[in-house]
């Protein structure tokens, strides 16, 4: 497979995103408003109840703020175009092109995500006017955090791709996709850290779920809840989920593609 066209796809997605200026302001504004809200919620909870599960208030506010910043890049969902292509039938033309459609979508998502991650800089800068953020636990943790974000991106992308590929069989996917997104937002630890889940089966399930690889893994490393050798295990688990989801996504794609070819779209 030649890599060059895909780099070009990513570049085009990047510059395309740059044309939606007002959206950028809306995104950053929404992050700041939520940073503000969550800092007040957590401050009240800590003031009334004291520290819980070994996470200090500054660490919690850092966690919540970073989760909102990660929303900016995880929220891209470039795989969504597949749904539109299948609906309109233009997928048939894409399948004739000498490219791999899933990798085209990946390249497009990477381009969009790179643009989205540029929003993180002003969003982070402005957040610092609202809240105090802890530095990463150690320099190694900072590096591992970045790797974990990257792996989280891959898991998240394949999850979106799986959802989009299901469109081959049913068009009523939008609602289902949103449902998975909401369940994921809770189980990934993006709303409440998994450490605060009631101890027992619910918490164990949440930690074991693939969604934990998206938010919980990088954020736990950043605030120092996961250290030393545990970091390796955490990153390893993310790799496993990325691989599993990748295999499922590409397998489903194969099946769907065959269906289009046989039925003629």
């Amino acid at each position: 497979m030649r890599i060059r066209p895909y780099v070009e796809f990513a570049k085009r997605a990047f510059s395309r995103e740059g044309t939606y200026r007002t959206q950028v302001f809306t995104h950053i504004g929404s992050v700041l408003l939520r940073v503000f809200l969550l800092s007040m919620v957590w401050t009240a909870l800590y003031r009334n109840n004291g520290e819980q599960a070994g996470i200090t208030l500054p660490a919690m506010i850092t966690y919540a703020t970073l989760a909102l910043l990660l929303d900016l890049i995880y929220g891209v969902n470039g795989a969504y175009v597949i749904r539109e292509k299948i609906r309109e039938g233009s997928i048939a033309i894409d399948l004739m092109r000498p490219i791999s459609v899933p990798f085209y979508v990946l390249a497009d998502t990477v381009g969009q995500t790179l643009f989205a991650s540029m929003q993180i800089i002003p969003a982070l800068g402005l957040s610092l006017f609202i809240v105090h953020l802890d530095a990463p636990a150690t320099l190694g943790a900072a590096f591992a955090f970045l790797v974990a974000v990257l792996l989280g991106f891959v898991v998240n992308f394949f999850l979106d791709l799986i959802m989009a590929t299901i469109t081959f069989w049913t068009m009523e996917i939008f609602g289902v996709q949103l449902m998975v997104q909401f369940i994921s937002s809770l189980l990934s630890g993006s709303l409440v850290p998994l450490y605060f889940f009631p101890p027992g089966i619910i918490q164990q399930l949440a930690f074991a779920s693939p969604f934990a690889a998206i938010y919980n893994a990088p954020l736990s490393i950043y605030i120092g809840k996961v250290t030393g050798l545990q970091i390796v295990t955490t990153l390893g688990t993310q790799v496993v989920w990325a691989f599993v989801f990748g295999v499922v996504a590409l397998g489903l794609w194969r099946l769907g593609e065959r269906q289009v070819v046989i039925q003629g779209g």
Partner: peptide, 29 residues
């Protein structure tokens, strides 16, 4: 599908409050 989605949406919102407050039982009383 949308009905089910609506249930999940509110379920997650209420679930978040429940999980949060299972550790922090009081929010300003």
């Amino acid at each position: 599908i949308w009905l089910f989605f609506t249930i999940i949406y509110h379920g997650v919102a209420v679930g978040t409050i429940w999980i949060m407050m299972s550790r922090f039982p009081s929010m300003n009383g």
